[in-house]
Computed example of a mutant assay.
Amino acid sequence: MAIRVLFPSSSSSSFSTAHATPTPRTRARARWTSRQRLLCCFSSSTSSSDEVSSSMTVSITGATGFVGRRLVHKLLSEDHKVCVLTRSTSKNKAASLFPASRYPGVTIAEQEEEWERCIKGSTGVVNLAGMPISTRWSPQIKKEIMQSRINVTSKVVDHINSSTSTSSPQPEHEASSNANGNGPSVFVSATAVGYYGTSETDSFDESSPSGNDYLAQVCREWEGRARQVKQEHVRLVLLRIGVVLGKDGGALAKMIPLFMMFAGGPLGTGTQWFSWIHLDDLVDLIYESLRNPAYTGVINGTAPNPVRLSELCDRLGQVVGRPSWLPVPGLAIKALLGEGATVVLDGQKVLPARATQLGFSYRYPYVRDALKAIAKQL
Rank of each mutant, 00 (worst) to 15 (best):
R35A: 15
S154W: 01
N92P: 06
F7Y: 04
F274Q: 11
G194E: 03
P329W: 02
L245K: 01
T89S: 15
S9P: 04
P365L: 07
A216L: 06
I374F: 01
R136C: 01
S44E: 14
V350C: 09
N161R: 04
V328K: 03
P139M: 09
R235L: 03
P104Q: 08
G62P: 06
C83H: 12
S43N: 09
S49A: 14
V84Q: 06
T153M: 05
C83W: 04
A355C: 07
G340R: 09
D281E: 10
V193L: 03
E221G: 08
G347I: 08
A294P: 02
A100Y: 01
D205F: 01
T107L: 06
G330A: 11
A370L: 06
R363V: 05
F187T: 05
L215T: 13
P169I: 05
S154V: 07
S189I: 05
C118W: 01
R117C: 09
G105A: 13
S210P: 11
G62D: 06
S134L: 15
W115A: 09
V320E: 02
S168Q: 12
D213P: 07
G194R: 02
G330H: 04
G268C: 08
S54C: 14
I256F: 00
G211Q: 02
P184R: 07
V84H: 03
V58Y: 00
G250N: 05
S13C: 14
H173M: 09
D158T: 09
L282S: 08
H73K: 13
S47L: 13
G121I: 07
D50C: 13
V218K: 03
I133F: 00
G62H: 04
S44Y: 09
G359V: 10
R29I: 11
T135S: 11
M260A: 04
Q36H: 05
E221P: 09
S55G: 12
A179G: 06
M56K: 10
G347M: 08
N127E: 14
D284W: 10
Q170S: 11
